[in-house]
Amino acid sequence: MTESFRNDDSVLRQRVAQVVQARRALGLQGLVGGLQTVIVAVEPERLKDAASDFLNTTGYTFGASLDFADGQGCVLHCPGSADFLFRTRSGGGWAFAQEPLGPKSAHLPGTRVETMVFACADVARFVEIQKRRGVRFLTTEPIRTDASLFIQTAPSKYSALSYGFVQWLGGGKRYVSSASRPGGWTLSKPEAAHLRNIGVFDHASVRVRAKDRDDAIVEFLELTDYEFSMAVYVDNLNSITNVARLAGEPYAMVITSGLGDAAAGQEGPTEKFIANYGRRIHHLAFRTENIEDTFAGLKAQGMEFLLELVGSQEEGLKQTFSRPSAQTLIVNEYIHRYEGFDGFFTKSNVTLLTEATAKQ
């Protein structure tokens, strides 16, 4: 490590306190709720394979196929959890097209977890306030359909993620609307007992550069009602895992970065991941019951893993990482928290999981 820059939680927490105060002063507090939908962009020729891969390795089921003016898609559901919308883009103008790739992602230039979409009680008011703050959106006004009002930010210069905000009209989620129509195809869900052990979407982890860590966290907090929860430092791997949570909601946002400037040859797994894949979501985590049986079942069906199960009932949780999907480049995490565990991660598990990412 060089001495030029190192992240410091005391600095971050001062900024976080200012964000919470500003949210109240601006009238943002209470406008944004829980995660509704995760939009995953995939190559046009891989849409069905990518969605099938997701169905084969999670507890999600097929909802509907969709045709949009600029591509196709499908929605996948899990009770009590955010939906996943896998979709393709045709033509030019994709907002993420200029985001640098790496040698291990260049063959899938149109593939990434692109947008995390949150519920919003009043999208018009939210946009008005955020525009005054200088937030850039992909459209000048919210997109209105008969099902929703929707808008999303331009890709973040810190995380390369977009954040979307949806106000459902007419009661409840509805993806078939005046802006889309049924696609006319479906996918089957495997009848496997171990897949029924895999439940709601627990968290996603986006990899950012060390110098962008504070800005990426603050940006997310400024756009949502989430609160900064914890940071786990793994000094020997030059890594910090940061968690933001919203009370009563199952989804947490995890932002992982380096500690600071690393000398050549001393880069940690996070810096190496960004060099190989570009800035993007590294993994999606799903709450898993009977995790030992589930792990064995996934292995038996051919899924490969970056490491064995780590953790124990005594420590409070067990976790593992799959190898990246060939269709989406996404790692699946399977996580079980035992009854009575009141944290989110343990440092020992974070260390082993972070170390395992070097294998991809």
Rank of each mutant, 00 (worst) to 15 (best):
V350C: 11
R15N: 12
A119L: 11
A252R: 11
S205Y: 02
G73A: 13
T294S: 12
L149G: 03
L223Q: 10
R174A: 08
P79I: 03
V127F: 07
D49F: 04
A82V: 08
F86M: 14
G80N: 09
V135C: 08
V176G: 03
S148P: 01
T57F: 05
T354M: 15
T270E: 05
T139W: 00
D83K: 06
R209V: 01
F54W: 08
V117H: 01
R15I: 09
A106S: 12
F201E: 09
K189A: 09
G172F: 11
L195T: 02
G27D: 15
N238L: 00
Q130P: 03
L246Y: 04
S105A: 10
G34P: 03
T61Q: 13
P142V: 03
N7F: 13
R87I: 07
D202N: 12
F165K: 14
I330S: 05
G92V: 07
G92T: 10
V166D: 03
E292S: 09
R87M: 15
K272W: 00
E355Q: 15
L55E: 04
I39Y: 11
I151R: 14
A95I: 08
A179H: 03
A41I: 04
D342P: 01
G278A: 06
P109F: 06
E249L: 11
A204M: 09
K157S: 06
L259R: 05
P190R: 12
Y338D: 13
H194F: 12
F344N: 00
G316P: 08
T328Y: 02
E219G: 05
R213E: 05
Y163W: 15
M303P: 01
F341A: 09
G59W: 04
A262L: 07
Q98D: 15
G297L: 11
M230K: 01
S4W: 10
G340H: 05
F68Y: 15
S148G: 01
K104H: 02
P142K: 08
G92E: 14
R337E: 13
V166Q: 06
E3N: 13
L284S: 02
V40T: 10
T186P: 03
V135F: 11
E355Y: 10
S159R: 03
F220S: 08
G171D: 12
K131E: 14
S348R: 14
T58H: 05
R24G: 07
D67L: 15
L306H: 00
L317D: 10
Y334V: 08
L149V: 10
Y163Q: 09
N197Y: 08
G34V: 11
I281S: 01
V135G: 02
G302R: 15
G172W: 09
F96H: 15
P182T: 04
D225L: 04
T115Q: 10
R15L: 15
I198H: 07
Q29A: 14
L161C: 02
T58I: 06
R13F: 09
T61D: 13
A50W: 03
D215H: 05
I217G: 04
L66F: 04
E222S: 10
L108R: 14
N236T: 02
K211C: 00
F295K: 09
N238H: 01
G343C: 01
D342I: 00
P250Y: 07
